[in-house]
Amino acid sequence: MLRDRWMSFAFLAPAVLLLGVFLYYPMIGTVIESFYSTSFINPNPAFVGFKQYETVMGKAEFWQVLANSLVWTVCVVALQNVIGFFVAVLLNQALPAQGLVRAVVLLPWVLPGVVVAILWRFMYDPQLGLINSFLISAGLTTEGIAWLADKTTAMGAVILAAVWKGFPFSALIYLAALQSVDREQIEAATIDGAGALRRLRDVVLPAIRNVILVNVVLTTILTFNYFDIVWVLTRGGPQGATDIFPTKIYELGFGQFRFGEAATYGVASIGVLALVAALYVLAQRAGSRRRRPV
């Protein structure tokens, strides 16, 4: 036991020190940079206060990036968790070749994001890709559809690729959670005449409620900052339709040498994400309060 607070601090020190030096110190530098008119071509930046924030937020671009980021995050997290959950329910049944299927389902998650993106870019290709070849031979379309080149379909296409890569992670966690649900409760509900859906709603979901929340928060953070797939598939295009915070920050900083604005976007993105995370925590607290009397 760690009754002694100094012992606690000793246990915390290595990790806290490392995070302080290698994450907080650079991040604080970035926050400071966002108050300076810094760029590669301007080696002697001036302090400009919040002016850079005003400039950045005064452009329609920023709000498009914000909207895209929210759509991207909400859709990927929702789909990944819903699909992951149902796959977990399925894999929790007695099935032929169950062990094999459980292992196979993990494949997308272990592939590097860059590879997944190149693979999907090829699959989406209007002339050479598998998806359009299939649609054409099935007679569903006469000409390949350029999923990634149309601003109305690009975000959907990018989201699908990300869900394909991400759902195994959620499935794995839910599978584990389902295995920990009390068998007796489920059997009792069955004897009471509850159908599969009612058992799911009344017994299973409440039992793994916490897992769902933790999983949703974790995938939200990871998705919001996920860079590889969007960058390789579209680079934020076409016409800015898939530009999200991480791609924008990279493009500004490394593509156009605009460090100050990149820093401004970076700080803004942490603000947005922290806000989203705070909302989850509030929702969870409200939820537990409501549940307590039961």
Partner: peptide, 10 residues
Amino acid sequence: LAQMFPHAAI
């Protein structure tokens, strides 16, 4: 919070 830092910015 540290988990939320965008890597491209740091």
